[in-house]
Design a protein around this nucleic acid. Sequence first.
DNA 1: GTGCCATCGCTTACGGCGTAAACGCTGAGC
DNA 2: GCTCAGCGTTTACGCCGTAAGCGATGGCAC
Lengths: 222, 222
Amino acid sequence: MPTSGSAPTTREPLSRPRVIAAAVALADREGLEGISMRRVGRELGVEAMSLYRYVSSKDDLIDAMVDQVIGEFPAPDEALDWNERLRTLVLGAYLVLLDHGWAASPATSRPSAGPARLSYVDAILGALLDGGCSHQLAHDALHGIDSHVFGFTLQEFRLESGVSGRGYELDAIVAGGDPEVYPNIARVIGDAHHDRDQEFVFVLDVLISGIERAIAGSPRTI
Amino acid sequence: MPTSGSAPTTREPLSRPRVIAAAVALADREGLEGISMRRVGRELGVEAMSLYRYVSSKDDLIDAMVDQVIGEFPAPDEALDWNERLRTLVLGAYLVLLDHGWAASPATSRPSAGPARLSYVDAILGALLDGGCSHQLAHDALHGIDSHVFGFTLQEFRLESGVSGRGYELDAIVAGGDPEVYPNIARVIGDAHHDRDQEFVFVLDVLISGIERAIAGSPRTI
DNA sequence: GTGCCATCGCTTACGGCGTAAACGCTGAGC
DNA sequence: GCTCAGCGTTTACGCCGTAAGCGATGGCAC
């Protein structure tokens, strides 16, 4: 083998970013359930135990994956008014999450908050404070917005990627049963158009206009 | 052994409800991670494989556990006005979920909807329709309410039962770092009072009053 | 050159998981 | 007494996360 020229088969060395990226790509294809240390290792042409040099546990890996996804959320556009800024911030987060649906669940249920998540939270709070929210109101509103972003995406993936396949599964259940048993579901389900983006925006706008009215009711004094 | 009188050591026969109840009790104590077929079996003094006569898989068990919890949600009080009925319905659901925090995650992310969940959805839709929502609006509002109920509870348990123990973990993270990095978090975190019930109600009221205004904007025509 | 040591991926092993398949017991009906 | 269905058990397979230790590689001091 020549002394300098690297052989084409020389594989790139492992690194934490490479491990995380491979895991994210795998989860994008197979979902969170498809993630195991052995599978991620295989993805990188490496044994499972080798990953532990870059990741302290599977939980650490998943936290890092989540933070990686949140890192893709678009940054706030400081030129916009606070409410429009908040809207685009949240909408941007939602659109990224749709590309990595598996991330909503650990993002919601795991306690860790990485730097990307803290930045995102900071940006949301920044918009709320610029709008005149009291610290308390900003704090409460953040919770509402956060559970909307992650909770809604989670629901979407529940309905979409269910074992039963695709579509709105209530359809099937209700259609198969007596319409007298769940009369209101039966009434609504036939007429309603199921457009997830429009639903997300509807709820988001309800939240934002509710926050605006709360600010008007008790604006920040300091 | 006498022919009739049952010996005190005779153990009650297994049954689906008994399996589900034992699993719920175990999850209440240990969380969802503590659920394994072997552990649930041990709880009942039985081998893991015996459960499969009453439950077709672990997923089936978990779906049944979730529906069991949702079955505890209080029924709607038809005497109330639609908006107050909706409020108490949602608040009742939230309070039950707090007692079974593990249930929020599978309730949100698994595709199955058992009879209790369908009843609950039907009750919510009933209130919305009584309020004059169009079918489309009722449908959209349902999604917002649902992700609030389950998403919010999920967040609460994320913050509470984290590995780091108890309390608001952002505190620790932010306090340890440079306050310049996340200035808005730093501003808010010191002042805001963290009262999860009050936060839940705040967001709920924002949602309900948003729905009221949406009804006023485009009431149901049929 | 020689010896050393840090880096890093691999091997082996353990206990636990979900569950398929086949096995025994036990009690009721005849 | 025989049969048979109901029901809990045993055994086994392939997966999982990860603790512990091994071996190769390559840069560095001398």
